[in-house]
Nucleic acid binder design. Structure first.
Lengths: 340, 340
DNA sequence: ATGCAAAATGCAAGCCCTTACATTTCTGTG
DNA sequence: CACAGAAATGTAAGGGCTTGCATTTTGCAT
């Protein structure tokens, strides 16, 4: 870690190029404010010293970091990894760098991470879902750090968001399922803590039940954590506790695939004996056998749009426009009419 | 973006707590250098003003950012997402924040990203694979930014790395495959540009062929980009061009799963007609039908170890010790003895 | 009480850049 | 060829924090 030859500073470049530090700074930040000959001198010096500006100093002097933070539950979940990749690609295009933190779906960690990224000088934040303590929203306001909510869309909330309506999407899927004659429904849900999306999906199913003259309270719920194995366990649990179930909704494809696996292991035929429906439409859903019927979520699109909106917000102050994207139903092989 | 009430500074806290800025600073950074009563006063003031230190200023004064950069090909690939998650968890535990950039497997972008993250003040860098231009390594040295190579392990190189020996792992798998009587082998590889892992896996197969008295030149190679669909296309290509093939190695599970899918579509039975072998052991491999035989790579473990090593390096100057992890063979249902 | 080392605190000099403002150098025109 | 105005460059003042060193306070043995 020994700093043998100290890293060159703007001053060193200025001296080498025989100009003032201001000129060097301008040359680097606003090249066309500088004569070509001067620019060449400076760039030569920069190269010769292999100078690279000191980030902290720059951040301090300009009060901007060109860094945007993203706080997601976990990258292990393909839907976030996917969206995040698109987000970062977009940011990169706009000259921003991405700072990432994850929460493992824990509210306390999320709060800590938000503070940490703000402390790090993030110019803006990407957040997943609306639900979090008012304190945090207040903190962000005080710190003057704009935050954009994604993976959810709800116009009733004051904050702009870019995402889709989880409740509506699930309602539509549930409506189709009920149309196929299913009356005994179950829902293997992700944990609903700090996860308003999971809750919204449940409400969507219940909406459809009510609209179809079923009793929403009859929806058999199992709540579990993320994971294939968890889906398997939950599946078995559902069939034990509510053997009359003919259609099982899953909060995400990973749980769905887990359910599917256990069905095979238990000799339960899908979709003949029971239908299974996922959510997200990740690769796994298509590869599963039989291929999983699910709700397609435009993860990449969300990431991209969010990146664009945030970059523009920070750069020009363009305020964020809420965008509702569409989730679509993907019918594959795990859903069939109920047996007469 | 209007700064209504300017953010509180260290000075403000100092004034409020009736102490000097130095004391506040110490109170925040080295709490035990300060009397309890003073500490309480200060912390109260911090809370009251909801003060949060200015990152740039801190970075500038301390010459450290507590930020570590990770540059990976893409988060869309579950193996990197997984490893990165573990990496970031570990960093977080040590008080570091992670800066992420991705390269889409392009050398020029990688170079740009490395420079960008160094410019951002990353205290250290996580890199994937050894292969990159000497200029970059020189640059890192000049800038005094330590870099750790992961996802690969090769003691012949001067740089420490934490990972596994791709060549050896693939050789072992290939040996087993050949033992089962397979003589006509093919390899659907990921692009080998800026991807020494892919190359190493190829060499591993060839090693095994040579050791088994086969001609390594007989390995039928198809090189393609990452993606299920690409795996499908490549599979068809292999069977068209080399119909006598009985075992197809794939550079990763995603390609393997794609191959599997096309096999089913084409009516080619796996493993009866042809065996398919993946690499990585991601969820997809287990879920695929039939379940994919593959090489299990300890992605999380790599991420965790790398995070630990880098955090300690930056914090205490503990030099990095190269660590070779084991990849293991996972035999599932896509590999069988060759038909007599 | 007194004196002294150790612990706590304060002072002030940077750290490296950006940018408002001042100054110098060009440019084109009369 | 002089001159106004534009363009290019220079000057210097911060920006918020850490830290070496100086100073004050504390705790304890005498």
């Amino acid at each position: 870690m020994a700093k043998d030859q100290p890293t060159p500073t703007l001053q060193d470049v200025a001296t080498a190029a025989e100009v003032s530090t201001a000129t060097v700074s301008r040359c680097l930040n606003f090249p066309d404010q500088v004569t070509e000959s001067t620019r060449n001198k400076v760039l030569k010096a920069v190269k010769a010293l292999s100078y690279s500006p000191h980030f902290g100093a720059r951040a301090m002097a300009s009060r901007r970091t060109n860094t945007i933070g993203a706080i997601i539950p976990t990258m292990e979940n393909a839907i976030f990894a996917r969206g995040l990749q698109a987000f970062q690609d977009e940011l990169h295009e706009h000259g921003f760098t991405m700072l990432v933190a994850s929460t493992s779906y824990r509210a306390d960690i999320e709060e800590e991470q938000i503070r940490a990224l703000v402390g790090r000088g993030a110019d803006a934040l990407l957040l997943i879902g609306h639900e979090r303590s008012p304190d945090i929203y207040r903190f962000l306001e005080t710190q003057n750090v704009p935050a954009l909510v994604t993976w959810a869309f709800d116009t009733r909330l004051p904050r702009p968001s870019i995402g889709f309506d989880n409740r509506k999407a699930m309602r539509e899927m549930a409506l189709r399922v009920i149309e196929l004659g299913h009356r005994n429904l179950a829902f293997i849900s992700a944990r609903t803590t700090l996860n308003d999306r999971a809750k919204a999906r449940q409400l969507g199913i219940e909406d459809a039940m009510v609209a179809s003259n079923l009793v929403s309270g009859d929806l058999y719920m199992v709540e579990t954590v993320y994971g294939i194995e968890q889906g398997s366990i939950a599946f078995e649990q559902v069939l034990k506790a509510a053997p009359q179930t003919t259609a099982i909704f899953c909060g995400n494809d990973v749980l769905g695939v887990g359910a599917l696996r256990r069905a095979r292991e238990m000799g339960v035929r899908v979709p003949e004996d029971v239908s299974i429906i996922g959510f997200d439409d990740i690769d796994l859903a298509e590869i599963a056998y039989p291929a999983l019927t699910t709700v397609h979520v435009p993860h990449r699109e969300m990431g991209r749009r969010a990146g664009k909106a945030l970059a523009e917000l920070v750069t020009n102050g363009t305020s964020i426009e809420a965008i509702e994207l569409d989730a679509s139903l993907v019918f594959r092989d795990t859903l069939a009419p109920v047996k007469n």
